[in-house]
């Protein structure tokens, strides 16, 4: 090793980590939306990501154009959200959190199995038409794909924020997230709002599925991106959208930096578990997360 610290290389790793982190945030936001309105930790989020990616790629392989496949998949995710909320979660409303968690765990496998039944089990390549050529930005080499993926994720977050800020459904969502019991008492139609949120979470999964799918290939391990989102949720707080954005960036950055700078000393392979070490540390120090308002329990 040289004596002089290579700052350009450091920045390159950092930016790469941050961009990957944005994509973690994207998956984590799906969790937050549902957690805030239903108090459910939706373990099936990963399966929804897989289901979306698999549906999209199977449709394009059958000759649908990008736009048509996107529209059909979006519709399918909306239907999935409506069915899950109405058929599974509504009958279980007011049950203890662990019951709801088990329900989404079961749901996770049913959605995966359903996707397999529908589209088969082989691995698909997903081509979004984004060239993954490195861009040179002030001496650093940055993946163009990562940059565009981060841009799309940021756009998604912006759209969601505007939706929650300026629409009636958005206002109702914020009210339910703030005080569910008061929302019930004042006559807000919770089932309707929760259904809307499941649809929104489905659309977020679609975007996450396309981005992650085109990076990792569309296969069943794609549903494991849920495991990447967990440390982000712990760090950012289960009930905070800004929290998971910051959490995602931090996890992405730390993960890559640790892999590059600490990895060689311990024989590599840190990336897989380092995020969990941070999350664990956070659980011990600040269980509500950086921005979380309350601890993880149904209110």
């Amino acid at each position: 090793m040289d004596n002089a610290f290579d700052w350009t290389f450091f920045s390159e790793v950092l930016v790469g980590g941050l961009l990957a982190g944005v994509m973690y945030s994207l998956v984590a936001i799906g969790f937050v939306l549902i957690y805030k309105t239903s108090g459910v930790f939706n373990f099936a989020q990963g399966s929804m990501v897989l289901f979306a990616a698999l549906t999209f790629v199977s449709l394009t392989e059958r000759g649908l154009s990008f736009g048509a496949a996107l529209a059909v998949t979006a519709a399918a995710m909306a239907v999935l959200g409506i069915v899950v909320e109405n058929a599974v979660l509504r009958p279980l409303v007011n049950r203890p959190p662990v019951t709801l968690f088990m329900a989404t765990l079961g749901l996770s496998y049913i959605i995966e199995g359903g996707a397999q039944l529908l589209w088969g089990a082989q691995v698909h390549a997903l081509e979004l038409g984004i060239q993954d050529t490195p861009l040179e930005v002030s001496g650093m080499l940055i993946s163009k794909f990562d940059l565009i993926a981060a841009g799309i994720s940021a756009g998604m977050v912006a759209v969601l924020s505007l939706f929650f800020r300026y629409t009636r459904t958005g206002l109702a969502f914020r009210a339910v997230a703030d005080d569910t019991f008061a929302a019930l008492a004042v006559g807000l139609r919770l089932p309707r709002i929760r259904t809307a949120v499941w649809i929104a979470a489905g659309l977020v999964s679609l975007v996450a599925g396309l981005l992650w799918g085109s990076r990792l290939g569309v296969q069943f391990s794609l549903s494991l991106v849920v495991l990447k989102a967990l440390p982000v949720l712990v760090l950012g707080g289960f009930d905070s959208v800004p929290g998971v954005i910051v959490g995602g960036l931090l996890i992405g950055a730390f993960e890559k930096l640790a892999e590059v700078y600490l990895g060689p000393y311990v024989g590599g392979g840190i990336e897989g578990w380092f995020a969990y070490a941070i999350a664990l540390l956070f659980l011990l120090i600040r269980p509500a997360g950086l921005f979380g308002g309350r601890t993880l329990e149904r209110v």
């Binding site: 009210a175 006559g187 807000l188």
Partner: peptide
């Protein structure tokens, strides 16, 4: 009281009109 604490006073009032 159970106001929606993170919402503005006016937003709180508006939520009363959403249910109907």
């Amino acid at each position: 009281r159970h106001c929606f604490r993170t919402l503005s006073v006016e937003e709180n009032l508006i939520t009363g009109g959403l249910g109907r």
